[in-house]
Design a protein around this nucleic acid. Structure first.
Lengths: 138, 138
DNA sequence: ATAAAACCTATAAAAATTATAGGGTTTATA
DNA sequence: TATAAACCCTATAATTTTTATAGGTTTTAT
């Protein structure tokens, strides 16, 4: 399951995607729309900005806005940013690899082998679905 | 990421699959093989038995053994049993459905729509990979 | 009888997630 | 240029989930 953080991030991105023409959007408005804590959402938007998905404008009249084309924001990226690894085990993670304590030899581990396949197939899905797909469904 | 519980369950099932001929296997032996806490593993094996994957024999000379054919133990089942939902959001879970608090109308939620697709494609993968596939890789 | 081994339930410890708090900085505008 | 609006940043608190332990119960081979 996705964390609330990631779920809220997706909601926020969706909202921003739907309001691209209006220039900037207030954290407040997004928080209100979905009933999310303002402060919690603030942290999430901050992360999304630092990761290069959003731009922001400070001060009166400021707010957030999308700076990437929705079709260039795959689910995989959003999930990795906020939830961490997509792989099911540390020992098959591309971005957050760690050896498993239980295995003496990874190359002889059947779980490892299967999980690499699962990871690759899962990635294919999550890299292909983008914010654009979400927006099309709204 | 899978919980340790699920990871340990997969190790245990793999071990039991590899030692099917020996009749019963001690919790102790599995725990030792992978460096897992005996007591923690005990709870996991208990769940696997209750779910119909394992049989057990009490008393001296007892232990656990597989009662399902490895090809009839898909990853999806093991994960659901120990980790819960496979879906990324409660609102698209087949087995653990709950509405999302943020959505007024699920049928108009683009996230919901996309996540249903992700769920279906993910399930296809996890239902097709079984303990047999793991055992083949050992 | 004894010892081995699974069974069962409760609880404790640790880690991760979720949420809040509070001041700092920037900026439009009156 | 004072003010208020709004994002920025970091720390910490609260909650929930996960992980682990504990301790006795029951069954069974010998």
């Amino acid at each position: 399951m996705l964390s609330k953080k990631t779920k809220y991030a997706l909601h926020a991105l969706t909202y921003l995607g739907k309001h691209q023409e209006q220039g900037t959007v207030l954290i407040h408005d997004i928080a209100e729309e979905y009933g999310i804590s303002h402060k919690f959402l603030e942290n999430i938007l901050l992360e999304l900005r630092k990761a290069g998905y959003l731009g922001s404008k400070k001060g009166k009249g400021g707010g957030y806005y999308l700076i990437k084309d929705p079709k260039d924001i795959p689910l995989s990226r959003v999930i990795r940013l906020l939830d961490g690894p997509i792989a099911m085990l540390p020992c098959v993670s591309l971005n957050y690899y760690e050896p498993c304590a239980e295995c003496k030899d990874e190359s002889k581990c059947g779980i490892n082998k299967v999980m690499i396949q699962v990871r690759d197939e899962t990635l294919k899905i999550l890299e292909n679905k983008t914010l654009e797909d979400i927006l099309k469904g709204e």
